[in-house]
């Protein structure tokens, strides 16, 4: 079942270019030089129920704008987006009832008041019955350990506790779709772990569809069944992380430590990319030769002391992806 479908979604912002100095300020007052920025440019995708989709892309790529259009905060300049077949602009109230949203950089909790008081307000807004509320709060406590700090004013919570509070607030009315905009930003290892555990848990238990934007590739690796890479407002890649990795970085590396530095190492199906004293790096394609075959070939011909295999670094791969798009200027949309 398709939960979210975006069709040729675009958002243009008009900004006025300011010139330097007082003279520039005056001239832009009289002759404003308007520039249209395509924050999101012809983006189309469909998201199935129960998917965990990661949106990644550099700062200013259009991730948050896309999320804001999906949740009805921003109106698209053109194109359409539907959630469960309804438009978030025309049927805003009906649609947002089904959504939970967390903005990592902004809080929906009352800063000066106890965490529990923010929950009480949400209980009234979403008309959650007492029994339902009790059951949900119990569950939130089990997974997120909310009760530990429910009586503390939000401003005194650690970032990790606050983020757990935000997630609980977003899930209190058991929405079938959850949007998370940078949910792990600024958190320590433990904090990130508990947030990821929560996301996995609600996804498995209730089939909640989760859309998250992040800069943390560990989030993507550990959570997302599907990745959408956005750059310059366009979708650059869309698919499971493994597929993208295979397409983007089909190489693996074999790092050898050899007995003496002088030996030149060659193999017909691998390139020697670097040789530092005793250490040699060879690059090979999975599709051309298996690691075991390469190792046995090399060990047979050369005095190999030690070896390890390095998988391509996802971070490098993503960086390549961002750069690639910068150079060509236009997206490699598929």
């Amino acid at each position: 079942m398709i939960v979210i479908s975006a069709d040729q979604l675009s958002k243009k912002f008009t900004v006025i270019r300011r010139e330097k100095g007082l003279k520039g300020a005056l001239s832009s007052l009289i002759h404003p030089e308007k520039i249209t920025v395509n924050a999101v440019d012809n983006v189309s995708f469909k998201i199935e129920k129960g998917e965990i989709v990661g949106f990644i892309g550099p700062n200013g790529a259009g991730k948050s704008t896309t999320v804001k259009m999906m949740t009805g905060i921003l109106h698209p300049t053109s194109g359409s987006v539907e959630i469960n077949g309804l438009s978030p602009f025309k049927d805003r109230k009906k649609v947002v009832r089904e959504l939970g949203v967390v903005f990592g950089q902004r809080t929906q909790l009352y800063w000066d008041l106890r965490l529990g008081e923010s929950f009480e307000l949400l209980k009234r807004i979403y008309q959650i019955s007492d029994s339902m509320y009790k059951a949900n709060m119990k569950q939130m406590d089990e997974v997120l350990g909310i009760n530990e700090f429910i009586h503390i004013p939000v401003r005194q919570l650690s970032l990790g506790q606050r983020m757990r509070g935000e997630l609980a607030a977003a899930m209190l009315h058991s929405p079938p779709v959850l949007f998370l905009d940078e949910p792990t930003i600024g958190l320590d290892v433990e904090g990130k772990h508990s947030i990821r555990k929560f996301i996995r848990e609600i996804n498995q238990r209730y089939g909640t569809t989760v859309i998250l934007t992040t800069h943390d590739l560990d989030d993507v690796e550990q959570l997302c069944s599907r990745l959408i890479v956005i750059n310059h407002g366009r979708i650059v890649e869309d698919g499971p992380l493994q597929d993208i990795a295979e397409r983007m970085a089909p190489y693996r590396f074999l790092v050898l430590e050899i007995a003496s530095p002088g030996i030149g190492i060659r193999h017909s199906l691998a390139d020697t990319v670097r040789q530092n004293g005793n250490q040699v790096w060879l690059r090979f394609r999975k599709s051309e030769i298996s690691a075991s075959r390469l190792i046995s070939d090399l060990c047979y011909s050369y005095p190999v002391l030690d070896l390890k295999i390095k998988e391509p670094d996802i971070e490098d791969m993503i960086r390549e992806l961002y750069k690639l798009n910068d150079k060509t200027g236009s997206g490699v949309c598929n």
Binding site: T71, G72, I73, R92, K93, V96, V101, I125, Y126
Partner: peptide, 12 residues
């Protein structure tokens, strides 16, 4: 401060 974001996300 983008306060209306949050209000737009609530069914009211």
């Amino acid at each position: 401060r983008g306060e209306f974001d949050r209000m737009l996300l609530r069914p009211l």
